[in-house]
């Protein structure tokens, strides 16, 4: 490629990418926090945050500063190491998948040939954080939250993988860039509507968002796994959750919504990122709307839903896809 000469050497390139991604991650958390509160406000027929800045736009910044200024409470009888490690464990693994996500044709930190597998494996580390947080807190409510998180994560990873597999079968690659490239003419959401639906539902569950927010379930478990956390520990979970949402939505965009493809823009190989972000935030908007509309499902109902409906449907979907691809 002719642009390779003007790019810095690989290592520096990666470093810059990581810095950009981490700062984006915080920015994303702030934007998502603001969006969530604003959308929630409008869903509930109230204005939402209005005081700090124009229409409360700086509210999340102020909140972030407040959380930074809070004392890090460590209750008695907790496992101090695990208790401190857990927020970091929730925050770190979610940075890595962003490295392989193609934001546009040229904006990708690293195109791994097994990119999809990499994202899935990093995504499953997140549940470790919840387990460690719940276990380390030495609190029965946190423990419930952790147990639920593990069971839920195991149950929903299978339909997620299977729905991804349907797409992989169609384009014969795990590289995210090539998957997007294969959607030049037609998005996979048209060819794989069932897989898309399964992916979105399971994705909401995977990120522990309402109506599947059982590890938190504040009316049952007070706050679930992060009951004992305050200050920055709490906000790292918070950022982890929003980043996780962002990753799930970006993967959905890459796999089903044609990634950076859209009406032509000047410098399309870079500005494709506009279409990418529009699609991602549309999905995130849907997830927020769902959260503020539905009650929470019960735990056994959630698992039944995963094992009895999502998994069989995705298997049938894969079977049909495989047969059709072979033809």
């Amino acid at each position: 490629m002719e642009t390779i000469s003007i790019l810095p050497p690989e290592l520096i390139r990666m470093l810059i990418a990581v810095i950009i991604i981490i700062s984006f991650l915080f920015l994303n958390a702030i934007m998502m926090g603001y969006l969530e509160r604003k959308i929630a406000g409008h869903v509930q027929r109230r204005p939402g945050p209005m005081e700090v800045g124009f229409h409360g736009i700086l509210q999340m910044v102020v909140d972030g500063v407040k959380l930074l200024g809070k004392e890090l409470l460590i209750p008695f009888n907790v496992d101090r190491t695990l208790f401190r490690v857990a927020p970091l464990l929730s925050f770190t693994p979610v940075i890595l998948p962003l490295l392989v996500i193609p934001f546009s044709e040229k904006l990708q930190a690293r195109d791994l040939s097994l990119g999809l597998i990499f994202i899935v494996s990093m995504g499953s580390v997140n549940v470790m954080a919840l387990l460690v947080a719940g276990w380390g807190s030495n609190n029965k409510y946190s423990m419930f939250g952790a147990m639920r998180a593990v069971a839920q994560s195991i149950a929903f990873e299978i339909p997620i993988l299977l729905s991804m597999l349907a797409v992989v079968l169609m384009c014969n690659t795990f590289s995210l860039k090539e998957i997007v490239g294969a959607q030049q003419k037609i998005w996979f959401v048209v060819l794989q509507p069932v897989a898309f639906l399964i992916y979105v539902i399971a994705g909401v569950a995977e990120t522990n968002r309402a109506p599947f927010d059982l590890p938190e379930a504040e009316s049952e478990l007070t706050a679930g796994f992060h009951t004992e956390y305050s200050g920055m520990g709490f906000s790292l979970f918070f950022i982890g959750e929003y980043t996780n949402m962002f990753i799930v939505a970006s993967v959905a965009t890459v796999l089903f919504l044609g990634g950076w493809h859209g009406p032509n823009l000047p410098y399309g190989e870079y500005l494709g990122v506009v279409w990418f972000f529009l699609k991602v935030y549309f999905l995130l908007f849907l997830m927020i709307m769902i959260r503020w509309t539905y009650p929470r499902v019960r735990f056994d109902q959630l698992l039944n839903f995963a094992w009895k409906y999502l998994v069989p449907f995705s298997f049938v979907n894969i079977l049909i896809t495989a047969v059709l691809v072979k033809l």
Partner: peptide, 10 residues
């Protein structure tokens, strides 16, 4: 209690 946030404000 059931986890829906909106009806309480309505």
């Amino acid at each position: 209690d059931l986890g829906a946030f909106t009806p309480i404000l309505y």
